[in-house]
Design a protein around this nucleic acid. Structure first.
Lengths: 236, 236
DNA sequence: GCGACGATGTTTGCATGCAATACGCGCCCG
DNA sequence: CGGGCGCGTATTGCATGCAAACATCGTCGC
């Protein structure tokens, strides 16, 4: 790698060309993936040494990536004690879910007013894939497609700022929401709710879509919260 | 606390104690202030050299601060060409205003449901100060208090995530919104709208407050957009 | 025996150094 | 006379070095 092949190597590698100037962003992306996948769980302390070795960069771009992820709300940096993955209390997730539900209600009416039929068709395709995942019992795939559907609905509002905020805030709580999908009763009902949501979107019924999304969020979060608070055991 | 009042405090200075570990955040705050005050206008290129000299830090924390501000949407960092203050097109501001209006509508109902009378009283105090600024012709003071009022209303929703997002997104467009307040006809009408908003809040009429805020935003932004597009000359 | 203290290795925070890229400017050629 | 090219300088991107803070553990005093 970059371990000083001394002379005669102007190019670092034929494949990884010119990452210069994007190092921190690249490292942040890698760490973000690991956090969102659960590989780096909430509370995990991130040592600069191990990450630099694992990612093949030095501490400077790594520390810049930490600042990015801290601003996104994924890391907490404690002075002189390094970075750790943010741990959210049920109350924190509660607040975040309220925000996400609010963002989706705002998006709902805009999406019905401005979304293109092509965008709606894409949501419908995702919906079909989600149903397929459910049938196949593929919980992870289901959850990922589910997230994609909600992001796509928000994107239908055709407001980049709204989409960006929704994406960032959604990422913050992704791990916590996953818990609620591990309950079979909720799973089948969520799919039915999605059917209605898709219909309302395609028929451009803004106020209805708004209420459906709000209710969908509320229902899902009610179950998830009980799981997080250990009042309900996942059965999947 | 952790300031070890033990013995012989080896603190370098009584005033600037232990900034270690907070350098980047401190620098980011300073630069943020300069951007929001207009001292660093949109498009301005930020040279590392001049900023390090002006702020008394080295390039490492400064570059970390750049990453923070980039993530907040205040700076754009072009690889190998440094950082510059983000320049928003009227369309960008349009999208941002739509988002802010949406966040306020979400906050409206929550604020009416959960806000305390003390919080409402604070909004009322700010409103009085705003009116005083208007009477005194203090445009800058008026604008600042105006921002405070809107932030306070959002804060009444008692949702930290919502407050944080509103604050960040509001900051991104602060400079652009200011233009619209430089029109006298809009100024007096905005104050009237605020009277109604305050009343609806105090009477906890969520849906009404929601609509009033939406209309208030729409009215304000309509004027501001015309100023930004040079179709309307400020008369203040 | 127990707790506080201190030595030492580890980790973080920031300064500095080096290499790569961008930029300004004069020159050459058309 | 204008445009492209090359060179020198400035600036950025990242690696490394050094000092402060932390942590771990052994020792000492009580």
């Amino acid at each position: 790698m970059q371990y000083a092949p001394d002379v005669a190597t102007p190019e670092p590698a034929p494949e990884a060309r010119s990452l210069r100037g994007r190092s921190a962003a690249h490292v942040a992306e890698r760490i973000r993936e690991r956090i969102l996948s659960g590989e780096l769980p909430p509370g995990e302390r991130l040592s600069e040494r191990s990450l630099t070795e694992g990612l093949g960069v030095t501490r400077t771009p790594l520390r810049e990536a930490f600042k990015i992820l801290e601003t996104e709300g994924l890391l907490a940096i404690v002075p002189n004690r390094g970075a750790q993955v943010v741990e959210l209390s049920p109350a924190d997730v509660d607040m975040a879910m309220e925000l996400l539900a609010g963002l989706e209600s705002v998006a709902a009416e805009l999406a019905c007013a401005r979304g293109t039929d092509e965008q709606f068709a894409e949501v419908a395709r995702l919906h079909a894939r989600m149903v397929a995942c459910q049938r196949a019992g593929d919980l992870v795939g289901y959850f990922r497609v589910n997230q994609d559907i909600h992001q796509n609905i928000v994107d239908c509002a055709d407001n980049p700022a709204l989409s960006r905020v929704y994406r960032t805030e959604s990422a913050r709580v992704r791990l916590y929401r996953f818990a609620g999908n591990r309950v079979s009763a909720r799973w089948s009902r969520a799919v039915m709710e999605h059917e209605q949501i898709l219909l309302a979107l395609q028929q451009r019924q803004g106020p209805l879509l708004r209420e459906l999304l709000r209710a969908h969020h509320l229902n899902g979060w009610r179950v998830t919260r009980r799981v997080l608070e250990n009042e309900l055991q996942p059965d999947l």
